[in-house]
Simulated scan of single mutants.
Amino acid sequence: MLDATIDADVFRESVDAIAALVTECRLHATEQGLRTRTVDTANVAMISLELEKDVFESYQATSSEMGIDIVKIKNVLSMMGKGDQVHLALAEESRKLEVSFQSYQYSITLLDTNTIRKDPNAPTIELPGKVVISGAALSAAIKAASVVSDKIALGIDPEKGIFYMEAEGDTDHIRLELGDDKLISLVPVQARSLFSLDYLKDMGKTMSKAEKVEISLGIDHPVEFTFDIADGKGHVMYLLAPRIEAD
């Protein structure tokens, strides 16, 4: 069972964060709020999202699991205006999520959760390098790198005390170095991995709105991005596997 009301902009930001990686997910409703954890079809990237119950104008739920078609939800959200309140309702044993706002009432058929892959386990990998940067600065660097290449190296040089982002194409090259004066914080541990810009561009659209994003890095390891939404009452984590560099 679910009966909740939430600001349309907060709901839209949450759905956009999920849509950056997947088109469907298992959404779990509990007494504490909503959450999902899922990986993309290529098993390259994962998202974990949590919305605390305090995000909602009103919230009541019992433990339930819903198969959500993210594309359908985004289409419904496109009809909502700024400042709208969205009411979400799921009755016991119902196969439909009722979504209401203004004078509109949508009844969206849920996906069969048996057709959606199970939630992945939480990552346990050690990523010692830590960088905290504004979401706008991170997104701008990702966009700049995509002009010259389809991949980007993220790294930390502890001797220089910098975080760097570097991309190299067939003929062009870009490198951005950021020190303490341009970062919120830095744990200067040697780190460097190469990543697909196709994934990072999609993630960057959501991360661009975050006041700060924590980046966790290792050497030829995945990268983890964590940031808050909904005034700190919502939490997003992206995990992206590295690309293998050619010799």
Rank of each mutant, 00 (worst) to 15 (best):
2 L>P: 04
2 L>I: 04
3 D>V: 00
6 I>W: 03
9 D>V: 01
11 F>Q: 05
12 R>C: 02
15 V>I: 13
16 D>T: 05
16 D>W: 04
17 A>I: 11
17 A>Q: 02
17 A>W: 03
19 A>K: 03
24 E>L: 06
24 E>Q: 14
24 E>R: 14
25 C>Y: 05
31 E>L: 15
34 L>E: 03
34 L>I: 09
43 N>V: 01
44 V>G: 12
46 M>S: 07
47 I>R: 00
48 S>L: 11
49 L>T: 04
54 D>V: 14
54 D>C: 09
60 Q>E: 15
62 T>C: 12
63 S>C: 06
64 S>R: 09
67 G>E: 00
68 I>Q: 10
68 I>T: 07
68 I>L: 15
70 I>Y: 02
71 V>P: 01
72 K>F: 07
76 V>N: 06
79 M>T: 06
80 M>F: 01
80 M>D: 00
80 M>H: 00
83 G>M: 13
85 Q>H: 02
88 L>G: 14
89 A>K: 00
89 A>T: 02
92 E>C: 05
94 S>C: 03
98 E>Y: 00
99 V>K: 08
101 F>S: 07
102 Q>G: 08
104 Y>C: 10
106 Y>W: 11
106 Y>M: 15
107 S>L: 01
108 I>E: 12
109 T>D: 07
112 D>G: 05
113 T>A: 04
115 T>S: 07
119 D>I: 00
119 D>F: 00
123 P>W: 07
123 P>V: 02
126 E>K: 14
126 E>A: 14
130 K>N: 12
130 K>M: 12
130 K>V: 12
133 I>V: 13
136 A>N: 10
137 A>E: 08
137 A>G: 05
140 A>P: 05
143 K>E: 15
144 A>R: 13
144 A>S: 11
144 A>F: 01
145 A>M: 10
147 V>Q: 07
147 V>E: 13
148 V>D: 10
148 V>I: 03
148 V>R: 08
152 I>S: 01
155 G>T: 06
158 P>T: 01
159 E>K: 06
160 K>T: 03
161 G>D: 02
162 I>Q: 10
163 F>Y: 02
163 F>L: 03
166 E>I: 03
168 E>I: 02
170 D>Y: 00
173 H>N: 09
173 H>S: 06
174 I>M: 03
174 I>T: 10
176 L>D: 06
179 G>H: 01
183 L>H: 01
184 I>H: 02
186 L>I: 03
187 V>T: 08
189 V>W: 09
191 A>N: 09
191 A>S: 14
192 R>E: 15
194 L>E: 08
194 L>K: 13
196 S>A: 12
200 L>Q: 10
202 D>I: 05
205 K>R: 15
205 K>H: 14
207 M>A: 15
208 S>W: 10
208 S>M: 14
209 K>L: 09
209 K>Y: 04
210 A>Q: 11
210 A>Y: 03
212 K>F: 07
213 V>H: 02
220 D>V: 09
221 H>I: 00
223 V>T: 12
226 T>H: 11
228 D>P: 00
229 I>S: 10
231 D>G: 07
233 K>R: 01
233 K>M: 05
233 K>G: 07
235 H>T: 12
235 H>L: 15
239 L>N: 14
240 L>V: 13
240 L>N: 12
241 A>V: 09
242 P>L: 00
